[in-house]
Computed example of a mutant assay.
Amino acid sequence: MPPALPSPAAPSAPPTTQGFLLRGRVSYTQFAQGYRTGLEPVLMAAAVNARAGQNVLEIGCGAGAGLLCLMHRVPGLAATGMEKDPQTAELARQNLQANSYPHATILTGSFPEDWHREEGVEAPRFDHCMANPPWHADNGAPSPEPRRDLARRLGQHTLRRWIEGCATVLRHKGSITLALPTSLADQALVALSASGFGGSTLYPFWPKSGREARIMLVQARLGVKSPARLLPGLVLHEADGAFTTAARTILEDAAPLGIG
């Protein structure tokens, strides 16, 4: 009998770096190469008007930065994240455990395609959904780092599918919060309206006073008929590049953004 072939080795975990969010209030580990967390998930989490005891879902949660910031600001949340990349999803679980959130759930899969794969399991009704979708067009040059490419490349219908999926898991008048480049605002508003969301609120972030906004938050509620609003937004940096006082209260002190 020929000798048994050895089982293929499991892929080794990529190297990580240890850091912090919210000026040391949250421990955060991320991969050393590939996609690196920016300001967007922290700003997004600050805008979600959640209360203790409510259910929150983050789609494309990455290593968990948005969930971690929101759960730090609002203790007692029931939080779920969904992430397509298995190694990133596992890192998010480790980050939640390291910050003493063992009861938060991270699911591995694509949203909404994999959401209902457990037959007979009724999907929960969430009070809030949030997402920081990929920002770059699907037809752009691919990144040589697969994980970075997955996090950055927006599929042709990804934004619309995520919004449609949120409409199926949110309770009536539940909120959706999206961190987007301003170039996707029009697509988001069309998809939100088509999926039954209303009361859309646009909140731009100005890199410096007098500069064009490049990122913004779009927030809406399912089943409401209120008209859209454009708020004054927030200036992120002083002329010398330092964060403004208002930005520091959000990014460092975990203050709520107060969009709602």
Rank of each mutant, 00 (worst) to 15 (best):
T29L: 08
P232G: 01
R229D: 03
R211A: 14
T201N: 01
P112K: 04
A213W: 06
R73L: 02
W115C: 08
M82C: 05
G198A: 07
P102Y: 11
L22P: 06
R171M: 10
F197R: 13
S183P: 01
G66M: 02
L257A: 03
T80N: 12
G140T: 13
R160I: 07
F111W: 09
A65V: 02
A254M: 10
P146Y: 13
S100P: 00
L231R: 03
R148C: 12
N49Y: 12
L150C: 04
E83S: 04
S27K: 13
G76P: 08
N55Y: 15
C61P: 00
A46L: 02
R152I: 05
L222W: 02
E90Q: 06
Y101A: 14
P133A: 09
K225Q: 15
G174F: 02
P41H: 04
K225T: 15
A92P: 05
K173P: 01
L184S: 01
I59C: 06
H103I: 05
E90M: 05
T244R: 07
T29V: 11
P144G: 09
Q87L: 10
A179F: 13
G64V: 00
A246D: 10
V218W: 04
D253C: 05
A179D: 07
A255E: 09
A191P: 02
G174P: 05
Q18R: 10
P146K: 12
P2T: 05
A242P: 04
G155T: 13
R125E: 12
V42I: 10
L68H: 06
P232D: 01
E58M: 02
P181M: 11
H172M: 04
A89H: 03
P144R: 15
A123G: 04
G34R: 14
H157M: 11
K173V: 04
V42N: 02
P2D: 11
S175L: 05
W206C: 14
S175H: 08
K208M: 10
S100F: 08
L91G: 02
V190A: 11
S100A: 14
I250E: 11
G109A: 08
C166T: 12
R248Y: 14
H172C: 02
A213F: 08
F197Y: 14
E252Y: 13
A194V: 03
L43E: 05
Q187G: 10
G196Q: 09
A247S: 05
